[in-house]
Design a protein around this nucleic acid. Structure first.
Lengths: 365, 365
DNA sequence: CTGTTAGCGCTTTCAA
DNA sequence: TTGAAAGCGCTAACAG
């Protein structure tokens, strides 16, 4: 219980503590701030006074004069997405351990929100920012450049951005996708649907068109597409543009697209999803088509979840090291803040294919 | 690109903008801060100078002198939990609309973390806090009281705390649980396992013991237990302590406990889970016991998810209005910050039972 | 309508 | 070792 401080307006200040303890402001500040020398005797008195008044340092004022906030800013697409939630936890766990708070903002994949979020962080004078940016073009990175220009260290997480020469902590998206598709191919599949991400109006009709589209969209999407293509190439399976779904992988659109590929004359016998939400969509499509997995269609998708293991059948999924992704990003950022020269390189973590039962040979093999 | 400001140290300040524009500091402050009158002419010059220098207001300094931060603090158990993620989105959507940023902290259900989080928010001088507290006792709410003593408005969300006279935005947990259990009873079930929450060392052997335990634990858990009991009572089904699982609903423990209830001489024919994670655990137990749902065991659980609909069978679940929960909490808090007298009451939102296919009559009925 | 001045609470020289 | 005083960037009286 704070004692009566007369008609003090707000919470107790350091001056009030000093007065209460009968010492100078600087002395109180030194003991409470934990810097400089103070005699044990005065120290005691100050501590007692602070305790009595229920003093807590005003972090704003402190940042004001020191110029540092001991706070990291984090910008992700959607904190409600288990993937980002895991990354953020990795970030906050490691930054907490090093004395930093973190403030996280979601952009819901809107560049405008991302810019706004960046400004909030700049305005709040965070010491550094970690961002999973939706920016791809040179024209879309102005806000990140602005932060850098102000001397705020930035590290990218999950999504690299080619036009930005920054440290980026990512996973081996291309390898991961290739590995998954390879497994499908090894099981005998040759008609493999690829539920892909970019919100394009229309799917490019050629391989080259697809690759071009990829280079104008999220880095992760591009990598995963390349992985799919890699696997196909290695197995000399011709690429068929009809087998890739393009557009936001929403729960509404995916079932329709998967149904389309399932209805093709030479229908798909397997689907590879680049995102967890797409997996539930694909499953829905299987069900309405009256197809059973894995007997009639095989399935592999990105991002394992506790549900995947209890599905019927248990799903083969690609697990990303979410916590480590965040932890590593925080480490790199914190080191930079601490004065280390940024290495401006790509830090690639390994994902893992968790084999369960959603892959079987295609019917008739 | 910010122009060269000579050897200016950090980011441009309002004084530099004023100098650049050739006006007094206050004039620059007035136009940039959007208050007071400024002639169109000077206004233009200031704006141009600000633009040129890449000026952005220092939110810390601003808060410092105004005493408000236009920031809300949010404390939840785990932002990675889809339930809380939804609540937080509700909060940030509505506070953003009213000009407030939000900073959210996770406690992972540790009271110590919750206290630390509260202090961080106090230190950062947030204008108000929304908290889903793990506190139950009078002895555990000191940190919340401390915030209140400092004049920081607080509203509870999801979890009411009886020893705190505050606004609380919650759902009808008791009714929701009762409704779910009633549905099971209506289908003919009488042996209904209740996968409950409190991390008790041992399950109380009596109904009274259970209720006592409930009053010493999370409000939500208590309410849900009461709902279960209500339904049983209404149907005159005797309460059997063996049918309630107690303890953290972790993925590891749940399957074992459900298996135990399934192995009872007079085994359960249905299970009601008070949390989503428990649902996957229960499913796991069904599978290892070689039991099929809903033919051999029925299942209902709290918190719908996109997975629940694509399970085999599609799961009957209780959906909570997560977004509204957050939105309402933010509204109440924002109103209080704006000067409204807090009503200090319980705002109860309705949940919804989503009927799918995981409930069927027990075998032999 | 505009500029000067005094803080906000803290840290940090600089003397004493 | 301690205290006085200046300053961080901004807002808010108060004159002019």
């Amino acid at each position: 219980m704070p004692a009566d401080r007369g008609r003090a307006a707000g919470p107790p200040t350091i001056s009030e503590v000093a007065a209460e303890a009968g010492v100078g402001r600087a002395t109180a500040a030194r003991t409470l701030g934990g810097y400089g020398y103070v005699s044990p005797e005065l120290r005691e008195r100050v501590l007692a006074a602070a305790e009595k008044l229920g003093y807590r340092a005003n972090a704003l004022a402190r940042s004001m004069s020191t110029g540092v906030s001991h706070t990291l800013g984090v910008i992700v697409a959607d904190i409600g997405n288990p993937f980002f939630a895991g990354v953020v936890r990795g970030i906050s766990d490691t930054s907490r351990a090093r004395g930093f708070d973190t403030i996280v903002l979601s952009t819901y994949e809107e560049l405008g929100e991302e810019v706004a979020a960046t400004n909030v962080l700049i305005d709040k004078r965070v010491d550094g920012v970690i961002i999973a940016s939706a920016a791809v073009d040179r024209t879309e990175v102005a806000h990140i450049k602005a932060a850098m220009d102000r001397g705020i260290p930035v590290v990218l997480v999950d999504r690299a951005v080619s036009s930005l020469d920054l440290d980026a902590v990512v996973i081996d998206n291309r390898d991961a996708a290739r590995e998954g598709v390879e497994m499908l191919i090894a099981a005998g599949h040759r008609r493999i649907g690829f539920v892909w991400g970019p919100p394009l109006a229309q799917a490019p009709a050629t391989r080259r068109g697809l690759l071009t589209a990829a280079s104008r969209n999220l880095w992760t999407d591009g990598e995963r597409l390349r992985g799919y293509l890699d696997a196909l190439d290695d197995a000399r399976i011709p690429f068929d543009p009809d087998l890739v779904m393009v557009g936001r992988k929403t729960e509404e659109r995916v079932p329709g697209e998967v149904a389309r590929m399932l209805a093709l004359p030479d229908r798909i016998t397997a689907v590879f999803c680049t995102e967890t939400d797409a997996v539930t969509g694909a499953l829905r499509a299987f069900r309405t088509a009256g197809l059973s997995c894995p007997r009639d269609v095989a399935l592999i998708g990105f991002d394992d979840s506790s549900w995947a293991a209890v599905m019927e059948p248990p799903l083969t999924m690609i697990e990303q090291p979410v916590h480590e992704l965040g932890a590593k990003a925080a480490e790199v950022l914190l080191d930079t803040i601490a004065g280390a020269e940024p290495r401006r390189e790509m830090h690639t973590l390994r994902s893992r294919l968790i084999v369960r039962s959603s892959v079987a040979p295609p019917a008739g093999v």
